[in-house]
């Protein structure tokens, strides 16, 4: 069980547009567009869910999807060096 919680960094401004998140790094002007699944994960992070809880929620929404755990950890490991999120 991964009980780690990640928070969205304070220099990131974001909004949900048509179910998809758009996030802007206010420090360097780079912006990011997320697909639906990534947007779900992002919003769960914003609700202070642990990684395990997020995986469970995604699995509930999309039953029998084998790759959820790996996919969530991959996207988290992409967001960390981009300084979109950090460990709490």
């Amino acid at each position: 069980m991964n009980s780690q919680i990640y928070g969205i960094n304070s220099n990131i401004s974001w909004k949900v547009l048509k179910d998809n998140v758009v996030a802007v790094n206010l420090d360097n002007g780079n912006y990011y567009t997320f697909n639906f699944t990534a947007s779900l994960i992002w919003q769960y992070l914003d609700q202070n869910k642990t990684i395990a809880e997020i995986e469970q929620l995604i699995n509930t929404q999309f039953p029998d999807t084998e790759t959820v755990e790996k996919d969530v950890e991959e996207i988290i490991s992409y967001w960390l060096p981009e300084k979109l999120i950090s460990k709490k």
Binding site: Y32, D64, D71
Partner: peptide, 24 residues
């Protein structure tokens, strides 16, 4: 499997992806 229905919208699971756009 791999399909979610919410408020009449059916979604198929897609791998989470983020596209980065560089600032001008």
């Amino acid at each position: 499997s791999k399909i979610s229905e919410n408020a009449g919208v059916i979604r198929i699971y897609e791998k989470p992806e983020t596209k980065k756009h560089d600032a001008m």
